[in-house]
């Protein structure tokens, strides 16, 4: 079948774009599948962190642990996948804008019902711009917001102090606010 995801991610960590893309596809598929499975019978709400962690365990858990670089790549990939999923769904909702209204949208049945604000599209565009300016900050937003990792987890994953991460978050957020405003 397809190559081991650990190998792909390791290759990706060494700069192999194709490997990374392949990993992305697998992670994306796995997220969807897990979400569907997790949906069955869970009493508590389902958060992106849960999804991403499940995907991690599923794809990498049983084998030897990923190198720290690869682990980071995994989460970053998963976060991007989540971002893509959410944005795509917001796009499907159409162009109706009712600024501020939270619409409860039952997504395609494979994902939890997340409240999708149409401004997710604008966020996606803003993140795109932020990525061109400062990729690290964009990645931080993806990891924290789309993958739902908290500061302690982020600190461990990225090898930085919580304080500096919080500072970076503030900066990224500020930039996004201004970008969203200007758009």
């Amino acid at each position: 079948m397809s190559p081991d995801i650990t190998l792909l991610l390791d290759a990706g960590a060494r700069g192999d774009r194709a490997a990374l893309e392949s990993a992305y596809t697998q992670v994306y598929a796995e997220l969807k599948r897990i979400a569907q499975g997790l949906l069955r019978g869970r009493d508590d709400t389902l958060s992106p962190t849960v999804l991403v962690n499940e995907a991690y365990l599923r794809l990498c858990g049983a084998r030897e642990a990923l190198t720290p670089q690869s682990r980071k790549h995994f989460y970053a990939t998963a976060a991007q996948a989540m971002r893509w999923i959410i944005t795509d769904l917001a796009r499907q909702r159409g162009a109706d804008r009712r600024g501020g209204d939270w619409q409860r949208v039952p997504l395609d049945e494979q994902l939890p019902a997340v409240a999708i604000d149409p401004s997710f599209l604008a966020l996606d565009a803003a993140l795109q711009r932020l990525g061109e300016i400062d990729p690290a900050k964009r990645e931080l937003v993806e990891l924290r917001f789309f993958a739902g990792l908290d500061y302690p987890e982020l600190a461990e994953l990225l090898g930085r102090s919580e304080r500096s991460l919080k500072r970076d978050w503030a900066a990224a957020r500020a930039a996004l606010v201004v970008m969203l405003d200007e758009a």
Partner: peptide
């Protein structure tokens, strides 16, 4: 200011 990313992306109860 309020920003979309201020609240975590937690799904609501499926209705």
């Amino acid at each position: 200011a309020r920003c979309l990313i201020d609240d975590p992306l937690v799904p609501l109860d499926r209705d």
